[in-house]
Amino acid sequence: MNKTRDISVVGGTGDFFMSRGVATLMTDAFEGEVYFRLRVDINLYECWEKA
């Protein structure tokens, strides 16, 4: 169980067509062994506008 984890963001639709970036997942809170809350920060570095 890592406190934070980075995953890649590739693709998308609508306003986020062909997006590239990184999403950081952070464990925000635990309730027992089953329930937990995640916080997600998404940073997009490249985004194309649809023509």
Rank of each mutant, 00 (worst) to 15 (best):
N2R: 04
K3N: 09
T4F: 10
T4W: 07
I7Y: 09
V9H: 02
V9K: 03
V9I: 15
V10Y: 14
G11C: 06
G11D: 05
G12I: 07
T13V: 14
T13K: 15
T13N: 11
G14H: 03
G14S: 09
G14L: 05
D15K: 13
F16D: 07
F17T: 00
F17N: 01
M18C: 05
S19G: 01
S19F: 07
S19M: 06
R20K: 15
G21N: 03
G21L: 06
V22P: 03
V22W: 00
V22A: 02
A23D: 02
A23H: 00
T24Q: 11
L25R: 01
L25Q: 07
T27Q: 11
T27K: 12
T27L: 15
D28P: 00
D28R: 07
D28G: 00
D28K: 14
A29S: 12
A29H: 08
A29E: 10
F30E: 09
E31T: 11
G32A: 04
E33G: 08
E33D: 10
E33R: 06
V34K: 11
Y35K: 12
F36E: 03
R37G: 00
R39M: 10
R39Y: 10
D41Y: 01
I42M: 10
I42Q: 09
I42T: 14
I42K: 08
L44I: 15
L44H: 12
L44V: 15
L44G: 11
Y45M: 12
Y45R: 14
Y45N: 14
Y45A: 11
E46T: 11
C47M: 13
C47R: 14
E49T: 01
E49H: 05
E49I: 06
A51Q: 13
A51T: 08
